[in-house]
Design a protein around this nucleic acid. Structure first.
Lengths: 344, 344
DNA sequence: GTGAAAGCGCTAACAC
DNA sequence: GTGTTAGCGCTTTCAC
């Protein structure tokens, strides 16, 4: 038994090829009863459209391109991020019979724009999902847009009404974490900022400030130190904060690596966590559950974000063209053992 | 300027379409001078074959399928492994103008065989790379083989002369690590075994025994404890080893998670690493460089292995059909700070 | 060694 | 609402 083609389905359902095509592609102008009959035939023959034939005839492959900055192998948290995004995109693709084309690339590459436009012209994806931090680079975004391929940006720095994007509520969730720390009785809550280039990371800092205000606490620069997202920078920052005469009783770091570093420093200094010091991070990388005590942090819904993005692309063809939209998928607090009531 | 087609190239080179096709596909029966001329035309027009047209005409997409067990997001070391394999496969694919189709799946899924054969029938890849531990499951391997699609197994449990495979020298490199520890003066070298299901992990244990023998040390069961690859099991094993009257001066764990656990336990017990105790792992996950002291370990060349596998598939079409082969890509020792001369 | 013709399985454009 | 007719750009088959 050889594979069923669209003709076989058409013959079985007693309609033309084109009607089958309409049903498969969810196009309008098919009577409900006809649609049902065609669907039954598809089911019976286990018909699935041939992607190559589709691609050839439509000048557009039924695939979604996922473009992201290439993590060096074994690097964390990048690897976890990438896998999450792939998983989310694949979930959306599988239901819709789309394939996923992954394209890791180096954001320092000078020819990145032509590399990406080449990819698009060659593979002709139905749409592109562009992950942060690439989605923060205007020349990359513009070069993709110039090909006319639908684009969804993941975590773009600032929302842009003219573009499709999916983001999380960095700022709000950081405010929530800050309020949570305040609710535990902490009044001196320090913040370790992240790499200044990453716009979403800057939003985390704003959320911290919001949270202080919402809790009736004063924001002061003295409680802010500047890291660069690395574990090492976290060590330096935590030492600076904890070496003071009146150290903070809570430290909120803009990512988990720096938060883990703070736990490490506290341990060296003999400061008990969470009894004397509460520590919170952001990202929920696997390290968060491997440190002792386990780290209270914020989980970004990366997989859901990517899934949402893929759906925008796949379903988007039937939307009005001008209907730019940005979706927000909320992050969530992961309360673990590194936070507790303020001492005293 | 629209994209060049095979006709454009043929016209420019003054040959037929078919000859261009022969050149592009590296088929025989083209005079050298003709080939050169065609290649020049290809270059000049920036011609790249349309994958959809190719796939449609040849009943076979120019793509490589990479099938692996799905890590839950944020799980390490799976994420790092997957990224490495993807990177290696992509390197090979890009040069040859193949695409990569990734297929994470759940190895506990009952319908896995039909899921995979469906995938193959619909996407029609030129070949499949099957990663461990899936490559250790005979019914999966056989179901792929039954579709007639070329298959390369990554780290199959035992080499099989009838199949294509790529593996690393687990056993030899573990013997080398053991000899290295012995060369530092250690005579009581303990081993923490890994999960019994993973065949490659069992080879590591054999390598440990080889290494002892090669160093003139006696193997004794007393120095072996059984873990399951998890950090927690490593804690239990390390406690058992270090709680003895005459503890070992070196611990070699079958993976990095358990080795990191050993470092953790030693720290709690006040045993200085590497002064009083040397610790070695296997995998070189990113945690290996995040623990203190940094972990001496073994790096598996996963990315190279996947690249080799992809090349076997892509180039293999021109080989003799019966030419099964298995490649070995050697692993390497990563000497860091957790190992040192034996005390005393 | 090289070329001509046929057709892969689908969608686009338009007719009805 | 539905069907008809052309191709999409390549590989296959077979002729030379």
């Amino acid at each position: 038994m050889t594979k069923a083609t669209i003709d076989d389905v058409a013959a079985l359902a007693g309609v033309s090829m084109k009607t089958v095509s309409r049903v498969v592609n969810r196009e309008p102008n098919v009577r409900e009863s006809t649609r049902t009959r065609v669907e039954a035939a598809i089911e019976q023959l286990h018909y699935r459209p041939n992607p190559s034939a589709r691609g050839l005839a439509s000048h557009r492959a039924h695939l979604v391109g996922l473009i992201y900055d290439d993590p060096s192998a074994y690097e964390i948290p990048s690897a976890g991020y990438v896998i999450s995004m792939q998983q989310g995109t694949l979930r959306a693709c599988r239901n819709a019979h789309y394939e996923l084309l992954i394209h890791p690339c180096n954001y320092r590459n000078r020819n990145l724009e032509s590399e990406i436009t080449d990819l698009i012209e060659h593979a002709r994806p139905s749409g592109i999902i562009l992950a942060a931090p690439l989605s923060n680079i205007p020349r990359i975004v513009r070069s993709i847009e110039s090909t006319g391929t639908p684009l969804v940006c993941l975590s773009p720095g600032k929302p842009d009404a003219k573009r499709l994007s999916v983001a999380t509520n960095d700022r709000e969730i950081c405010a929530e974490m800050t309020r949570y720390l305040a609710s535990l009785g902490h009044t001196k809550i320090a913040f370790i900022t992240g790499h200044p280039d990453h716009k979403a990371v800057a939003n985390r800092f704003l959320g911290y400030q919001d949270g202080l205000q919402q809790s009736g606490l004063k924001y002061t620069e003295k409680l802010v130190v500047h890291g660069d997202n690395s574990f090492d920078s976290g060590v330096v920052c935590a030492r600076r904060l904890l070496g003071r005469k009146h150290p903070p009783t809570a430290i909120f770091a803009a990512n988990d690596d720096m938060a883990a570093a703070a736990i490490h420093v506290a341990d060296r200094l003999g400061i008990k966590v969470p009894d004397k010091l509460s520590i919170a991070g952001f990202d929920d990388i696997s390290l968060a559950r491997q440190v002792f005590p386990t780290l209270t942090t914020i989980r970004q819904p990366l997989s859901r974000m990517a899934e949402t993005a893929a759906h925008m692309l796949i379903d988007g063809k039937r939307n009005e063209p001008g209907a730019a939209a940005s979706a927000i998928v909320p992050a969530s607090l992961q309360i673990r053992d590194s936070t507790g009531p303020a001492p005293g």
